[in-house]
Design a protein around this nucleic acid. Structure first.
Lengths: 258, 258
DNA sequence: CGCACCCTTTCCGCCTGACGGAAACGCCCT
DNA sequence: AGGGCGTTTCCGTCAGGCGGAAAGGGTGCG
């Protein structure tokens, strides 16, 4: 029986299937887990894993389990989508952090999801469940809604049409309310999102324009403890200055790169 | 003739060959470049690239060239070697940055090379040629020498045996001098490296102990402008406090993870 | 305007090297 | 010792990858 016919998994596909089993919940896996998750035969999984390891794309822990290797991290860390953005944004994020000592987050949109690209946090910042490299539905977070508000219509409709998940009792799940929020975001630029993802946090978010054409390709956000929510108001101005700075910097780089 | 026989490139190998052509000097490549660099036939390269792209591991720019995709970045960003370290170190790096406003760098050793894992830099910090995700010979940088000093003998001998590259007129290339430096590092912990990689920078570096056994698995460094070199002295204490904090944090996490 | 060059994409027949079942190995726990 | 589980090795079969070649597309030059 083997692949059951219509599986359509090519050799390259197998490699990626194997790599894809490593995520934030499972940074480390055993061979049989990998075989199980991918549906590959153990012997096949074994060979693929061994090959990847010989390349440094996977590494083996003392206990025999596997995890993503430094070599793959190196290659992927050059990903322009994140690298260019990070580079331009970091100094501004630093300034913001220094002024606020809160979590400063940078994210991009990928389809109808949000991917966190960079985060600055210090000892005094609140603990967050969002980690760099993780995805969330755009509609679920303040930063995501900012991205959504500036995304092509088609995406907005797609997201508004789908049922929205309620993470907390305060999460906006009504499409009409959300649509109104998107309008508000387009008018005011900065958006304050109150306990949408977690009961204990409030986020302030603003759009970053990437490239000279000026499309909104990223969002910058500050996350504060919900009990200090009044802080959020005062963060609008500095946040706005930061996103302008980043957008300008990105524009300058794009121009000189031509 | 095709692969010339002794090529020994398996399917998984081809995928990695293709991915490996993307580095910091070439974040973006055309199909024919990829074929050229890997030695694959264009048609083969085309198929592999297309498959990778269908998975989101590669993405295509408007001009038709290819680059590493967000999906691959996501997977690789979970790499434990960097992720765990980053997580524990960032708050301390933030504090250091705030106290100094200089470049704060975090690196690990991979064989006889140094890989930069994280960096904090603000508007006021000096420009550096070292980027996150890039490699340097361990002997070339202050952070690298700290890692080398605490590495197994075999690596030290291997590095000392090889000819050392001089990046600036001040770069130490004499094995005897270097050996003396390694001794000094083991005694003093903090090491000041004077214009070894670039004429215009001085670095202060210290070892980070990863895991409970206490092996030195990373190094933390501060890079300042060479003209402000006297600053370096004053940075030893705060740097030392930071690496102690990070080491302790890593130890705590390793313990609770068991 | 058309030709020439280069890069990309598609097609296809040959044959290699990937596939997975099975058996051997090693480890831990009982 | 024995059983159970996860890993590693082996090997015969055959699907799917391979690359040469030709078509397609875009750009710049004569």
């Amino acid at each position: 029986m083997s692949g059951m016919g219509a599986n359509r998994v090519t050799a390259a596909g197998k490699v990626l299937q194997v790599l894809a089993v490593f995520d934030r919940e499972h940074p480390s896996r055993t061979l049989s887990e990998i075989a199980q998750c991918t549906g590959l035969a153990v012997s096949t999984a074994h060979r693929v894993v061994a090959e990847l390891a010989s390349w440094g794309a996977l590494e083996r822990a003392e206990d025999g389990s596997w995890h993503v290797g430094l070599r793959l991290w190196e290659i992927a860390s050059g990903c322009p989508r994140t690298q260019i953005l990070r580079d331009a944004a970091l100094p501004f994020m630093q300034d913001l952090y220094e002024a606020t000592h809160e979590n400063i987050q940078l994210a991009v949109r990928e389809g109808t999801e949000l991917v966190f690209v960079e985060r600055i946090a210090g000892h005094r910042s609140v603990e967050l469940l969002t980690m760099v490299g993780t995805r969330f539905p755009v509609a679920s977070t303040g930063m995501g809604r900012v991205l959504l508000a500036h995304a092509p219509r088609e995406f907005q409709e797609e997201v508004l049409a789908a049922p929205l998940r309620a993470w907390t009792p305060h999460t906006v799940t009504d499409p009409r309310t959300l649509r109104a929020q998107l309008d508000l975001i387009r008018r005011e630029q900065v958006f304050v999102s109150d306990r949408q993802l977690s009961e204990s946090t409030v986020a302030v978010a603003a759009p970053v324009r990437t490239g000279r054409a000026g499309p909104v390709g990223a969002a910058l956000g500050i996350v504060v403890a919900a009990r200090g929510a009044e802080r959020a108001r005062g963060l609008r101005e500095p946040l706005l200055r930061a996103v302008h700075g980043i957008s300008e910097e990105l524009g300058r780089r794009a121009r000189t790169a031509l």
